[in-house]
Amino acid sequence: MGGVGEILITLGVVLGLFVVWQLWWTSVEATAQADKVLTEFRATLPPINPAAAELRTDDPPVPDPVGYGETIGTLVVPAWYGLTNNAMPIAEGTGMDVLDQAMAGHYETSQQVGDVGNFALAGHRRTHGNSFRHVDDLEKGDQIIVETAQTWYVYEVTDHEIVTPDQVDVVAPVPHHPDQKPTERLLTLTTCHSLTLGEYGNDHRWITYATFVGWMDRADGTPDQVR
């Protein structure tokens, strides 16, 4: 076999290995890291009270902002049970160093969880834990739950849209209306999407909107879909 042929075959094999690395190995590393962060975070929390309780609809407590990379809480998406790691840490910031650890990253310019405005999160679609891989499975009314040290916050999906990556207005306090004063409590998920490659591309962004439906003090109980 000629040397040129060997080099071409080698390049082909290396490219194949790169795909394996990106689709499989990055997730192995990232989910291990996310599990570690989750375990450490939960170790600092009081034990879960498994009782059922009514969701409260008065003004929820709003946690203080934390520093870049610090853990805010946990993102639980019951519709993703059995599909991906459906409980993932939420950390402050949307840098790749945060997102590559299979965590949801909180846009630093967006509001805190429970606050009036937009609690906006970014996560990988494929690779690095496939954090938001099944975002396209979410339907209107599906719950998105945020767990913090003191509180459960329950949101329900209202809508989604596919936008170009420069559409930063989707994480504004009032999405698409950066000048308006917010009156609602929203949660927004942003992740990669491709018009041609679906979950495998990143030429667009998949944006899922959810609206706040209630909260629960951890001491009082646990939301139905988490128990």
Binding site: L17, F18, V19, W21, Q22, L23, T26, T94, M96, L99, G105, Y107, A122, G123, H124, R125, R126, T127, H128, F132, V163, P165, D166, Q167, V168, V170, V171, T190, T191, C192, Y200, G201, N202, R205, I207
Partner: peptide, 19 residues
Amino acid sequence: VFPVIAPYLELLGGDPAVG
């Protein structure tokens, strides 16, 4: 090698944030 070259081959991984 792959972690170093991955940012230059953003076909699959890519930055999922807007902005």
